[in-house]
Amino acid sequence: MSRIESVFKQKNHKALIAYVTVGYPSIEATLKVVPLLAECGCDIVELGIPFSDPMADGATIQRASFKALENGVHTALCLATAKKLSKKTSIPLVFMTYFNPIYQYGLAKFCNDCVASGIDGLIVPELPPEEGDELENLTGKSGVDLIYLLAPTSVEERIKLVAHKSRGFIYLVSIAGVTGTRTELPPELGKFILKVKQFAKQPVCVGFGISTPEQAAQVAQNADGVIIGSRLIQLMETDDAAMTATQMFVKETRKALDSIKV
């Protein structure tokens, strides 16, 4: 069982997954915030490797990516940062990035270096299973979970395909859209999660748009976990040095998830 899978084996526990862009607002901030996120109740942290053309991201993560690139962040530095983080925290770490940065790094070398840096999984938002053969092979050999995504537009055939191929969990995109906070989630989301769960042997986690503890709890009624990105980035943008607001938000979200009767 992979370290990611074992997160979901805890009884009566909904997973809380956080996303941060590596190097935003600084590498030091990333090194500081990830262990805090773990302490406040995050089960997994996604580390975003910034890309110059983030087509699946809304304004918040775009801004974070551009700033991180200005700060000189690149793939090797993200791997080095992950290595430091994996010594500071025991929760699973997952890279989330677009295909081109890791393609240039060399897919095989990247997978090896992920293992050496304590990375447990990989999410590539613009890599559908049809294009994923090579990376599936390499991650499979390295023991890195390649996590595929599903969207509200996915038909049954594609749900089956992703359920067959995704490792660790399935990343279910809550809405047809880009990343970013939303005041409301689509009413049909709950039904869609249940439909995916009919086919999925692995856990199903929902991301995109989740911005409040209430939304997290609502989604986790049906899902095995929730993923929060843009909201955390926004909090970090204005937070104090101790990251008080970020910690408080994560704790409240943890509490909301723990209050769900399973």
Partner: peptide, 12 residues
């Protein structure tokens, strides 16, 4: 070539 796009767009 190929099709490197978010899952949301694949059905379209």
């Amino acid at each position: 070539g190929g099709r490197f796009v978010p899952e949301t767009l694949v059905p379209a």
